[in-house]
Design a protein around this nucleic acid. Structure first.
Lengths: 196, 196
DNA sequence: TGATCCGCAGACAGACCTGTCTACTGTGAG
DNA sequence: CTCACAGTAGACAGGTCTGTCTGCGGATCA
């Protein structure tokens, strides 16, 4: 069977799709198991056979978002060749992201807001943030910045702040501010000789 | 153990203190009414006579944090005279804030993450963010920036991002990055003649 | 044909949630 | 003293939560 769009996806896939929709839009704490299985059209036993607990389902949900976000970013970066444009592509991509009708902020920021410390949510969040930071540092290095790690920390602030503002102010236009801010910081971090 | 036995504070005060402690550290959704009244040493009827509902208690909790934060910022600003230093004082103050052992991110960001849209939490959040934005714009104007509103939006990004990173990465040192980033953006926004 | 397995449907347990209500206690005003 | 009233203690209602368990239908394979 080479068909990718089967009429019946596996319970695991349907559960993850339901989690992606309900957890992301309404919150991990506020959405209960019953609504997940109803939305997925799956038996409760299937959920507990597949994931074992709600917390593990949340972890799987966050991991799936982690993968999607990294795909989105690496695709945006890969579409450019000039190192400076590749770095700024991360912030360009926020324009479309924030404008999506189903955008509702950073899934990790929201999920970790009320998650117990030291749990699976915190683990998934740490992994995610480490990868974002590494991507920014790598692109900063390729752009010829003397201290890529330092610029990556600054840009990570801007990236986070923009995502948070876009949700809390319900204002997608903050993406333009974010992009301009990133550019200003990149310019300030470049040695004068390299600015062109 | 309920931490009371002080000179009799009113039920309202004790409830707000309990809310400030429990809601802030563990989350608005995860902490129930029973834990609030137990921690406050107050009868359940007193809570409902005073606030009417949990949502109203949450609103009062957020308003009290709003007041405390604005006090902290205006005090930090008032301690300086030079306009540039007054603007940067907002970011200087993050150093102490993030280092506090009870720091746990922005109460508004956490509370709004899973709050229903259009509710009291959203209202309180909008008001809070508007005031922060206005403060930044006013300080930017006093610093002689040509477009204070534009710089205020950038600095708000940085302020938000730093608060979020400090919580999610459990890393208070991000305050220094935030301060340096704000300074770089301020410099970039000033007309060359005014930079000194 | 029969055996095995996957998944669905839903009852159930035990805990917790918000919010209401009754009954009691201490205190201050007139 | 009497009365009003603010506050306490806690039962209660009605619902939701996570997680377990049983029973059943359909598919697959020897």
């Amino acid at each position: 069977m080479a068909t990718t769009a089967q009429p019946k996806r596996s319970p695991r896939e349907r559960l993850l799709a339901a989690a992606n929709e309900l957890f992301y839009h309404e919150g991990v704490q506020t959405v209960g198991i019953d609504r997940i299985i109803e939305h997925a059209g799956v038996a409760k036993a299937s959920l507990y056979n597949t994931f074992g607990s709600k917390e593990e389902l949340v972890r799987a949900y966050l991991e799936s978002r982690h993968g999607k976000t990294m795909d989105r970013l690496t695709r945006a970066v890969a579409a450019r060749t000039e190192p400076r444009a590749r770095l700024l592509a991360v912030f360009d991509s926020q324009t479309d992201l924030f404008a999506r009708p189903d955008f509702h902020g950073c899934a990790f920021a929201s999920a970790s807001a009320e998650a117990p410390r030291g749990g699976l949510v915190e683990q998934a969040t740490d992994t995610y943030r480490g990868e974002i930071r590494a991507l920014l540092a790598e692109l900063a290095a390729q752009a010829g910045v003397p201290d890529p790690a330092a610029l990556a920390r600054q840009l990570h602030l801007v990236y986070d702040g923009a995502t948070l503002s876009a949700r809390m102010d319900r204002d997608p236009s903050v993406a333009a501010v974010s992009r301009a801010t990133a550019e200003a910081l990149l310019d300030a971090a470049l040695p004068p000789a390299r600015r062109d």
